[in-house]
Amino acid sequence: MPHKRTVLVALTDTHHGFFRGIARYAKEHNWHLATDMIYTAHIPHGWRGDGIISFIGYWDELANFIVRSPLPKVELTLVRSDLDLPRVDTDNVSMGRLAAEHFLARNFKNFAWLPFANNIISEERCAGFRHTLKQHGFDCTILPVAHELGQSDKTFAWNWEQQRQQLIDALNQLPRPIGIFCYNDCIAADLVDACQEAGLLVPEEVAIIGVDNDPIICECVSVPLSSVMNDLEGVAYEGAALLDRLMNGEPPPNELLRVQPKGVVTRKSTDILAVDNVQVAKALRAIWENYTDSNLSVLDVVAATELSRRSLERAFLEEMRHTIQKEVLRVRMEEVQRLLITSDASVAEISELTGFARPNHLFRIFRTIHGMSPREWRQGNRKQSI
Rank of each mutant, 00 (worst) to 15 (best):
K4G: 09
R5W: 15
A10H: 05
L11G: 04
L11C: 08
L11F: 09
H15M: 09
H16K: 11
H16L: 12
R20S: 04
A23N: 09
A26H: 03
K27G: 08
K27N: 10
L33K: 03
A34N: 08
T40S: 10
T40H: 15
I43R: 02
H45P: 11
W47I: 14
D60Q: 09
E61M: 11
V67D: 12
R68P: 11
T77V: 04
L78A: 10
D89R: 13
S94Q: 12
A99V: 06
E101W: 04
E101C: 00
A105F: 11
K109L: 07
K109H: 14
F111G: 00
A117K: 08
N118D: 12
N118S: 07
I120D: 15
I120T: 09
E123S: 13
E123P: 07
E124G: 06
F129C: 02
T132R: 06
G137P: 02
F138R: 02
D139S: 14
H147T: 12
G150P: 04
Q151C: 14
F156H: 10
N159Y: 15
E161Y: 10
Q163Y: 09
Q165K: 06
Q166A: 12
D169N: 08
I178Y: 01
N184I: 02
I187K: 03
A189H: 07
A189V: 06
G199E: 00
L200H: 03
P203W: 08
P203F: 09
V221H: 07
V223G: 08
V235H: 10
A241R: 11
L243G: 03
D244M: 08
P251T: 03
R258G: 11
R258A: 14
V259L: 02
G263T: 01
G263R: 00
K268L: 13
S269D: 03
T270C: 05
N277H: 01
Q279L: 00
A281T: 02
W288N: 10
E289D: 08
E289V: 07
T292W: 01
D293N: 15
A303D: 09
A303Q: 08
R310S: 14
R314K: 12
M320G: 05
R321C: 08
K326F: 01
L329S: 10
R330W: 02
V331E: 10
V331N: 06
E334H: 14
L339E: 13
H361L: 14
I365G: 08
F366Q: 00
T368D: 13
I369R: 10
P374D: 01
W377S: 06
N381L: 09
